[in-house]
Computed example of a mutant assay.
Amino acid sequence: MTFRESLEGIEIDQLSGAFFEGWPNPPSTPTFLKLLEQSYAVELAIDEETGNVVGFIQAISDGVLSAYIPLLEVLPEYQGKGIGTDLIKRMFNRLGDLYMIDLLCDNELQEFYEKQGMQKASGMVIRHYQNQAGAVNS
């Protein structure tokens, strides 16, 4: 497994795995690439044999005080191998100078993030599931 902190040299066909498992309306591969490109920071896990991206994490930030991690995904066939843990550690290292790093996750994922040093907190959200594939103008 190779880890990279940029999209440099990544082609759209390297992103074509079954990311967003369980999403009723997942983003298309071009929208997926765009959301990575417009992130403050990304970390990618790449299978050295295939050259394909098999995991990623992205952060959105003001670069001063705060960052939000909206997505951490590892392809199902690569889960349980420490890739998600490596991705989040790499991202936490990159964001370590900021005051706060926040994310929201489903209840069943809280234990994973607690093992990474995060604390449970409460939050509020709005979800427009009809836009889950990406904004109309994406």
Rank of each mutant, 00 (worst) to 15 (best):
residue 1 M to R: 05
residue 8 E to W: 06
residue 11 E to W: 07
residue 11 E to K: 13
residue 11 E to H: 13
residue 14 Q to M: 11
residue 15 L to P: 01
residue 17 G to V: 02
residue 18 A to P: 06
residue 20 F to S: 05
residue 20 F to W: 09
residue 21 E to M: 09
residue 25 N to H: 08
residue 32 F to E: 00
residue 34 K to N: 06
residue 37 E to G: 01
residue 39 S to E: 01
residue 39 S to F: 00
residue 40 Y to K: 05
residue 40 Y to W: 11
residue 42 V to D: 11
residue 43 E to K: 04
residue 47 D to S: 08
residue 51 G to N: 12
residue 52 N to K: 00
residue 52 N to H: 06
residue 57 I to L: 04
residue 59 A to K: 02
residue 60 I to P: 01
residue 62 D to M: 01
residue 65 L to E: 03
residue 70 P to T: 02
residue 71 L to P: 03
residue 71 L to T: 06
residue 71 L to M: 14
residue 74 V to T: 03
residue 74 V to N: 00
residue 77 E to P: 08
residue 83 I to L: 13
residue 83 I to M: 10
residue 83 I to D: 03
residue 84 G to Y: 03
residue 89 K to D: 14
residue 94 R to A: 15
residue 101 I to F: 08
residue 102 D to C: 13
residue 102 D to I: 08
residue 104 L to I: 13
residue 104 L to S: 15
residue 104 L to A: 15
residue 109 L to A: 09
residue 111 E to N: 11
residue 112 F to K: 03
residue 113 Y to G: 02
residue 115 K to E: 04
residue 115 K to T: 10
residue 118 M to I: 06
residue 120 K to S: 13
residue 121 A to V: 13
residue 127 R to G: 05
residue 130 Q to Y: 07
residue 135 A to T: 12
residue 135 A to E: 10
residue 137 N to R: 10
residue 137 N to Q: 13
